[in-house]
Design a protein around this nucleic acid. Structure first.
Lengths: 199, 199
DNA sequence: GGATTACATTACGTGTCAGTTTCGTTTCGT
DNA sequence: ACGAAACGAAACTGACACGTAATGTAATCC
């Protein structure tokens, strides 16, 4: 029951797959809005337009529900970058990444922070998902860059994935300041380009 | 009452200053152990060896208590670094910084993540304290480095303070992996030194 | 000594939320 | 048509923690 389907019930009214999705998406919404601890099953059910037993029929509890919702989350795909201009590609990717993190990932990070203490399994699951998403988000501009003959240090994609999200999250949470245009340019020009380009 | 003393009561039994401190330190302990939401006044009182009313006599509630505790926290001082060897100084400072963050600051960051939603004032307060502490933690090795004629880019200290804690936190929370020796060397050799040294 | 306040202990009222159950209704397979 | 299961609404139980109050004792000033 931890992810949905129980043993196939052949008789009786079948489950509504639409409600499956509505529950998971409502969970993601509430999770990013109020965080893991403040998330209540009632709020999720209300947001999904669904009764509370309908939620419990599909998920064992809060931790399993959140894990399923995060699992269900499709990573957004970064914008295509014009080949041949590494700086422009980095600027676009970093700005988009910052918007994604500010809009969604911060809430998931908060859930990771707090949920991990009470449920190590949930923490491991969320780390897996977040790594998957961040990998998808960060390895895009380098495929085209390498193809167009850009001279990059070995492991440039890994270095980018290690630094860019870290500095973005740090600025958002720590300083509480937005990742506006000047910050993005600073990050690209003063940190990323000097590190990634072969000199 | 939000930070302790009420209007000076001249008559009657005076408050025990030792209990003031015990409460604040117990709050920090519990906070870093279980996070903001899981922190209960009962747990703090028990840990401080104090009755619950004694806590409420000094602090209006959970948010004020946590704010006072974080305010009370003294930033640890980084180890003195031998002059003349920038790499050794960075290695020592980064390792120490990572230990500090893993041991204490992670818990405060979690509190910041979750408490910020319910109490923006608390969030601002904690940002101020954490910035103060990180500044104290990160600007140490550069005083001696500049004195010993090391050639650093302008704003090297600010860049270090922006990147090192960010990458450390990212590794701890995201990857859930420790900041061991190989990681510290990687951070210093592949990121910090190339960025900070004038080439 | 007497008034006054701090203190620990204990108990209490309140509110919230998790998770379950009941009930009447609806939707499917057979 | 009939049985089985999903559904919404609502009520319910049990934890749990916040914040307050009552009681008796200890410390301090006047």
């Amino acid at each position: 029951m931890s992810d949905g389907r129980g043993p196939a019930p052949v008789r009786g009214r079948p489950r509504d797959a639409g409600r499956d999705i509505a529950i998971l998406e409502a969970t993601l919404l509430v999770l990013t809005e109020v965080g893991y601890d403040q998330l209540t099953i009632d709020a999720v059910a209300a947001r999904a337009g669904v009764g509370k037993p309908t939620v419990y029929r599909r998920h064992r509890g809060k931790a399993a529900l959140v894990a399923a919702a995060v699992e269900h989350r499709a990573p957004a795909t970064p914008p295509a970058t014009p080949p041949g201009d590494l700086r422009a590609a980095l600027l676009a990717t970093v700005q988009w990444l910052a918007d994604q993190i500010a809009g969604q990932e911060i809430g998931l990070l908060g859930a990771l922070f707090t949920g991990m203490r009470s449920d190590p399994g949930l923490a491991a699951e969320m780390r897996r998902i977040l790594r998957r998403d961040e990998a998808a988000m960060t390895q895009e501009p380098f495929r085209s860059a390498v193809e167009s003959g850009e001279r990059l240090v070995p492991g440039a994609a890994a270095l980018f994935a290690e630094i860019a999200p870290a500095v973005i999250v740090h600025r958002l949470v720590f300083a509480g300041r937005p990742c506006d245009r000047p910050f993005v340019e600073h990050l690209v020009d003063d940190v990323l380009l000097p590190l990634l380009q072969v000199r």
